[in-house]
């Protein structure tokens, strides 16, 4: 090392930073590309020229304009939002709980949302806003319950996970009871449980988008805290972090992101678990790079899956969740095997 750069990150770590910046730029490009494809491709066979004209002339009454402004743009936007929110939420939860098998489901998000939607439908309210609102509130309420249970013990990582399992089991029992007693609620909430983007609209998206953007922005300012927490409670404490408080705050933010996504996309369980793994294997575990990369990767992953779900048997649609498993599963296995080859 030369005297001039004696006390700065050396050339190897600078090149790692450059590599991370390139990967983030590449994932941003992939997101833009997948969004353009998602807007251009569809069952109605509109040409890119027609779509471009509809885009620059603003919302109108032509077929192209209606499809673009009321179907494809909201849907693409929804895919990006849901992917970014679930991937970041999953990353935060995995880091905070130091558990690579954790996902938004583990802190009760899906169970809470499922119960709230079932209850909402059982009460006879099938309106989209009611389902969106109740699912978000249900997700948050379940997470608060998990956090309170953990706090009443000692807020350690294990008690959060165990509390999550226990609360989820209780909530699912109530949900099952409701859908057994009210079969109509079971039918109405079935779409929600599978997850997908066929019924998104701007009204459902906007409040969720505000929550998702602000949640990810706050998390991006707390990436050092996230990394310090992953050193273990003792070390983090000794470094001056209020571990229990930060953990609860992070879990609340993660629940807010996942809850916002669930409110318009239903339960997409796979993304929050597997995209963080993919992202970590590609860009490493440094949260400062990982969080933005995860948001971009999650967004493009769901967008691509949704394109396939729409196009594979067009004009019939498959649920996006199924495609996610078909594409993501093998890709993940490939990543695992590739890593093994590298480590003799």
């Amino acid at each position: 090392m030369t005297a001039g750069v004696k006390h700065m990150p050396n050339s190897k770590s600078s090149s790692m930073k450059t590599k991370a910046a390139l990967l983030i730029a590449a994932s941003a490009a992939a997101l833009v590309l997948s969004a353009v494809l998602s807007i251009c491709l569809g069952a109605s066979g509109l040409s890119p020229g027609e779509l471009w004209h509809a885009l620059i002339s603003g919302p109108g009454t032509s077929k192209a304009s209606r499809i673009l402004w009321y179907v494809r743009l909201p849907r693409t936007f929804a895919c990006i939002m849901a992917g970014a929110a679930l991937a970041v939420s999953g990353t935060v939860i995995q880091k905070v709980l130091a558990n690579n098998l954790a996902s938004p489901g583990i802190i009760g998000v899906n169970a809470g949302a499922g119960l709230a939607v079932a209850a909402c439908c059982a009460a006879g309210n099938y309106a989209a806003w009611a389902i969106a609102g109740s699912s978000f509130l249900g997700a948050m309420a379940a997470t608060f319950l998990v956090v309170i249970v953990a706090r009443k013990s000692n807020a350690s990582r294990t008690t959060v996970v165990l509390g999550g399992v226990a609360v989820t089991a209780c909530i699912n029992a109530v949900t099952e009871t409701i859908v057994t007693v009210f079969p109509d609620a079971a039918l109405a909430s079935a779409d929600f449980r599978v997850g997908g983007f066929s019924s998104v609209n701007q009204g459902r998206l906007l409040p969720a988008a505000v929550l998702i953007f602000s949640g990810i922005a706050v998390i991006c300012t707390l990436t050092n805290e996230l990394d310090v927490m992953s050193l273990g409670d003792d070390t983090a404490n000794a470094l001056g972090l209020r571990v229990a408080r930060m953990r609860n705050m992070m879990l609340t933010l993660a629940a807010m992101l996942a809850g916002a996504s669930v409110s318009f996309a239903g339960i997409l369980g796979f993304v929050g678990l597997i995209v963080p793994h993919m992202a970590r294997r590609i860009i490493g575990n440094d949260s400062g790079h990982l969080i933005p990369f995860c948001a971009l990767l999650g967004g493009s992953f769901i967008t691509v899956c949704d394109i396939v779900a729409r196009m594979l048997f067009a004009p019939y649609e498959l649920p996006t969740g199924i495609i996610m498993s078909f594409l993501g599963g093998p890709f993940f296995i490939w990543l695992l095997l590739r890593r093994r080859e590298r480590q003799p």
């Binding site: 790692m16 990394d227 992953s230 003792d234 070390t235 000794a238 440094d286």
Partner: peptide
């Protein structure tokens, strides 16, 4: 500063 007995081996540089 405190160096605890049981430490994680974090996946970082």
């Amino acid at each position: 500063a405190y160096l605890p007995q049981n430490r994680n081996v974090p996946d970082i540089t």
